[in-house]
């Protein structure tokens, strides 16, 4: 697994040294900062819903999270494979003694780590809330951890989708739009349980609703079903990506 480490280091270097990364970080923090500011505004006006879990839901599971994810995940992942194929460096990379799976996994892991780094500064928001105690009870640490777990799980699947779309085209723009479309459809489908459609539809839709999953996590509900849902989706998307890079040999 030495080659995985070597590749991961290279990919992290490529991400963190690119202006794209810092633009994405700025955008992300602007969106999440706005989200936090609106939450504080809500609390300072003495909003009714001041229960700890609801606050975390407002912080992590609001529309702002989805807005940030919709932009950030495609932007982080669009260059991963598409750019290597466009510039021809993929030929140099894939004629070294490395497996396709190792290359894909290294690229994915680097993108996921960068996504995690994006979230690091947001830890200051719950910390502020904890210090200020705008509501009676202290912020629930468990629910907070579960909320972040949900954020990472959904992000992991979204980034896998981005790496996948990056493997099917040479154009970064196409790759980004593809990832955007997938995440967008997933996000919109997340509202299905909230639209009156009949009992069966609502219950089925709940299994695949990112919106309700995230709100559940933010209330501290760690259900294995959504966890499995995101891990399985991540796994098959990465598998499909490896197959795509292998298929390139036959084209």
């Amino acid at each position: 697994m030495r080659s995985f480490g070597v590749l991961l280091r290279r990919e992290l270097g490529a991400i963190f040294l690119s202006p794209m990364a810092w633009t994405a970080l700025t955008f992300f923090l602007a969106v999440m900062g706005t989200s936090f500011w609106m939450l504080l505004d809500l609390l300072s006006r003495g909003a009714e819903r001041t229960e700890g879990g609801e606050v975390i839901g407002q912080l992590l599971g609001s529309i702002f999270f989805w807005l940030a994810l919709l932009i950030v995940a495609p932007v982080i992942t669009m260059r991963t494979i598409a750019e290597e194929r466009r510039s021809g460096t993929f030929e140099m990379l894939m004629t070294a003694p490395v497996r396709d799976g190792t290359v894909v996994l290294a690229k994915y892991t680097a993108a996921l780590l960068f996504y995690a780094v994006l979230w690091l500064p947001t830890l200051i928001y719950p910390l502020t809330l904890r210090l200020l105690r705008p509501f009676g009870a202290p912020l629930d640490g468990g629910a907070l951890a579960a909320g972040y777990l949900g954020v990472m799980l959904i992000g992991a699947a979204a980034i896998a989708a981005g790496v996948f779309t990056s493997s099917i085209t040479r154009s970064q723009v196409t790759a980004a739009l593809g990832a955007f479309a997938i995440i967008c459809v997933f996000f919109l489908a997340g509202f299905l349980p909230y639209i009156p459609h009949g009992e069966t539809v609502a219950r089925t839709a709940h299994y695949a609703s990112g919106v309700s999953h995230l709100l559940d996590f933010a209330r501290g509900v760690v259900d294995t079903r959504p966890i499995a849902f995101y891990l399985i989706n991540t796994a098959w998307l990465l598998w499909a990506t490896v197959r795509m890079t292998e298929a390139r040999r036959w084209k």
């Binding site: 290279r10 270097g13 490529a14 040294l17 690119s18 510039s87 021809g88 460096t89 993929f90 030929e91 140099m92 004629t95």
Partner: peptide
């Protein structure tokens, strides 16, 4: 040891 045509390299390194 393979030298591809047009010699594609990571230009940021």
């Amino acid at each position: 040891g393979y030298l591809p045509e047009r010699c594609p390299l990571y230009s940021d390194m």
